[in-house]
Amino acid sequence: MKALELRDVEKSFKKRRGEVVRALDLVSLSVGKGEVVGILGPNGSGKSTLVRVISTLVLPDRGEVEVFGIDAVRHPKQVQRSMNRVSVEASFFKKLSAMENLLYGAKLYGVTTREARPRIAEILENVGFAQKRALEPMEHLSRGMQQKIALARALLTSPVLMLLDEPTTGLDPRSKKDVQAFIHRIREAHDSSILLCTHDMGEAEELCDRVGIMVDGKILALEKPEELKACYATNGRIPTLEETFMAATGYSVEEASAEKE
């Protein structure tokens, strides 16, 4: 049984002027148990809609979404227990402290304060977050620190499927490294399956077992990084992942980050 399986998933949105945007166009993919799958794509390619569909926040028009064999559209409550998500926006109650936000997040998954506190201490230590600062309001923390708390919040509920939607976008290099190292550890220590959406090529290559490229709601390819690069080899030269991305999408990395969704 796969951790995640999507079959022919379609999703369109109507815009105000009657224009229809096809966010997901017959998307099929799977993530095996303990596997990390990366999705590379420019902004507006449908990555966030993909994550929202899996996390039961958007209902697909057509197709099947299964999390550990359970239909996520028909039985959202069952699959919600087994997964969590980190998005590009840290999304917290800004006036509350990191600790208060974490305790709140844990309780929504049935984890009591008594159970959560030692776990929070352990996770914060692992991510290199000073315990004292956990008592400060979120709005006093840097973006990098907020993102570490977002990862801690997700991990606190022990998800077996993690959905990471551009978790390092906008972070300084040091915070980016810390967060990436943390994701690495999650994978090793917690045996979680991870779907990682990003436009950071290095991140995808370093963290992912397989990498897919997504453009205009379609997944063009989904292979091991080396195999994906080999697909776009010219004259026997294996391109970098960045070159592969440019060849597949027609976007440079900078353009991919700048395009508005």
Binding site: R52, Q80, R81, R85, E89, S91, F92, Y109, G110
Partner: peptide
């Protein structure tokens, strides 16, 4: 900005 986290919780 927390609505999605609340609505995706079980």
């Amino acid at each position: 900005g927390t609505i999605e986290y609340t609505f995706m919780s079980p």
